[in-house]
Design a protein around this nucleic acid. Structure first.
Length: 561
RNA sequence: CGGGGAGUAGCUCAGCCCGGCUAGAGCGCUUGGUUUGGGACCAAGAAGUCGCAGGUUCGAAUCCUGUCUCCCCGACCA
């Protein structure tokens, strides 16, 4: 493709709306343009990469027996009401104003709709159905460019099986396909155990890429490979040690002591002699959550332990509930349910709030003084703690979710009546699995992992072109003729070539654009080297350059890499 | 939804606090010329209802009120 005739609008300066490297570079290199918050247009160069990603996904999905569909984005609202997901999605679901339609955020309902009445026998199973299609979600806050958008391209797949054993097979096939896809795209990723959340179902795993731009936090053990979303991650950590003798409870005046740190400084005590209090509202009833020292409450774990709705109490509710404001609340005299993290189990001689502003209480023995206390795993794993599996140090960091695989079970087939007859003529619900990949996230994550201060660094197979051919001065007839011939010859050899044949533009502009766009190989045709019948080739990733004779050009590709 | 920031030329921004003539810069763009191995130079030029609406004022990019949009942090997120 000739740059002179292409729409590849590059930018010299960083766009003001972008913050993370991949987003900045996708705009600067002319891959995308924003239309509105969380809504992006793909420009030709960006879409070329996206198509390469989609081709890889197709190949790997077809390899595991997937059949490609294309379901509508516009869905009757009624079918979403049958599974209760109009309510479950709430404001995330886009509603059409002038007809009872919704814009589909995922397609379990539609898969079940088409399976119903057509998948009628165990002989019809198993099935793997997939599509690569646009999804719509009314995200309250889109961010990080295409990483969280209101409209995005997803590869979504669904398995239909007769039983759990069949689902296990389909799930394993997707695990395999996903690894193949992300490997081929050249991504460094890892797999974590995850919470199934509002999707329902039993087992779920996420494919993650480490990134500060990520919205998930994961705990990862380098040594044994233990990896889990912090929503569910566990670690081995030091529990409180019960001392032989319990002191009596005593009150201490602690003016302006608002945090555990303040308290430890004020009394010159250790963090693990203290219990931090957090008040939550569980279905309109207050509940006190006690954590050891400065441990943070993991709200996902808390929600899994408590049934019903859980939210933190508002600051103005605290006084009425406990008699004190945040910083002075504690278990002694607290009138409602009290639960505690298991690290606090049976602790004694502890310090905590007195439920009276500017006072704390010491000498607390949870066994003696808080008889109805219940213990659960409620804490959030932190970096440096010991791996629950092998005991070595855990690393905790942010990550971007590339893909998610779920064992759904029969939630949707039962709600929508997708039944089949088994070998014994007995009617049973079809067992489903659901599997998603954020297609644009693959591209964004690739760039997050492959860029430098000059721009993007592509490699096969995602690179939009194999070679960036730069003619330094197209007004020089030798440069023009040579580069035009090279352009034809390289394409004949089967290379995809981007040809900077612009007449205007200094060498600097062309070099900088080539580095920004990031094709793996640059071929530079200039007067200087042509005098000796030579051209220069450059490896974009390493920056290595080599001047080679024209007729040995293609052979030289191997050497520079 | 809570907190913070920003909307002025295609892009990046200054001007606003402290109202005052014809609203600025750099980059980009157009025309002509010079230049051509790391974002060149000279000359001439096009381009902005200062997000929108209302108000105060002799006079508003600037002050006030309302509103929309975008970005960041948080909440939320299959």
């Amino acid at each position: 493709m000739r740059l002179s005739k292409s729409f590849i609008p590059t930018l010299k300066e960083n766009p003001s709306e972008a913050v993370i490297p991949s987003h900045i570079l996708m705009i600067r290199a002319g891959l995308v343009r924003q239309l509105s918050a969380g809504i992006y247009s793909w420009l030709p160069l960006g879409y070329k990469v996206l198509r390469k990603i989609m081709d890889i996904i197709r190949e790997e999905m077809n390899n595991i027996g997937g059949q490609e569909f294309h379901f509508p984005g516009l869905n009757p609202k009624e079918i979403w009401e049958q599974t209760g997901r109009v309510e479950a999605f709430g404001d995330i679901l886009f509603h059409v104003k002038n007809r009872d339609y919704v814009l589909a955020p995922t397609h379990e309902e539609i898969v079940a709709f088409h399976a119903k009445g057509e998948i009628v026998s165990y002989k019809d199973l198993p099935q793997i159905w997939y599509q690569i299609q646009t999804k719509f979600r009314n995200e309250p806050r889109p961010r990080s460019g295409v990483i969280r958008g209101r409209q995005f391209i997803m590869k979504d797949a669904y398995t239909l099986d007769k039983d759990e054993a069949g689902l296990d097979v389909g799930y394993a096939l997707h695990d395999k396909a996903y690894r193949a896809i992300f490997d081929r795209c050249g991504l460094k990723y890892f797999v974590v155990g995850a919470s199934s959340g509002a999707m329902g179902g039993s087992k779920s795993e996420e494919f993650m890429v480490k990134s500060d731009a990520g919205e998930d936090t994961v705990a990862y053990c380098e040594k044994c490979g233990y990896a889990a979303n912090v929503e569910v991650a566990q670690s081995v950590s030091q529990a409180v040690e019960r001392q032989n003798e319990s002191k009596d409870v005593f009150e201490i005046h602690t003016p302006n002591v608002k945090s555990i740190d303040d308290l430890c400084t004020f009394l010159n005590i250790n963090e693990n002699q203290t219990a931090k209090s957090r008040v939550y509202i569980n279905d309109d009833k207050p509940i006190l959550v006690l954590m050891l020292g400065n441990d943070e409450v993991n709200e996902t774990k808390l929600a899994n332990v408590l049934s019903g709705n859980v939210r933190p109490a508002h600051p103005d509710e605290l006084k009425e509930i406990s008699g004190a404001d945040a910083g002075s609340i504690g278990p002694i005299g607290f009138k409602y349910r009290i639960i505690a993290d298991k690290l606090l189990k049976d602790g004694n001689n502890l310090y905590s709030g007195a439920n009276k502003n500017d006072y704390h209480i010491g000498g607390i023995d949870l066994m003696r003084d808080v008889p109805n206390i219940e213990y659960f795993d409620l804490r959030t794993v932190e970096s440096g703690e010991k791996c629950i599996r092998c005991g070595s140090q855990l690393d905790v960091f942010k990550a971007i979710e590339l893909g998610h695989i779920f064992k759904l079970g029969t939630k949707y087939s039962e709600a929508l009546g997708v039944m089949y007859l088994d070998e014994n003529g007995k009617e049973k619900p079809v067992v489903m699995g659901s599997y998603g990949i954020g297609v644009e996230r693959i591209l964004a994550c690739y760039i997050e992992q492959n860029y430098d201060e000059k721009g993007i660094i592509w490699k096969d197979p995602l690179s939009p072109f194999d070679i960036h051919l730069i003619a330094l001065n197209m007004k020089n007839s030798l440069v023009k003729e040579t580069s035009e011939k090279l352009y034809r010859d390289l394409q004949k050899e089967g290379f995809e070539v981007l040809f900077d044949d612009r007449i205007e533009g200094s060498a600097g502009i062309k070099f900088n654009d080539a580095d920004l766009l990031g094709m793996p190989v640059q071929i530079i045709v200039g007067e200087k080297n042509l005098k000796e019948n030579k051209v220069e080739i450059k490896n974009r990733r390493t920056g290595n350059k080599k001047v080679v004779e024209l007729d040995k050009l293609i052979d030289s590709f191997q050497e520079i890499f």
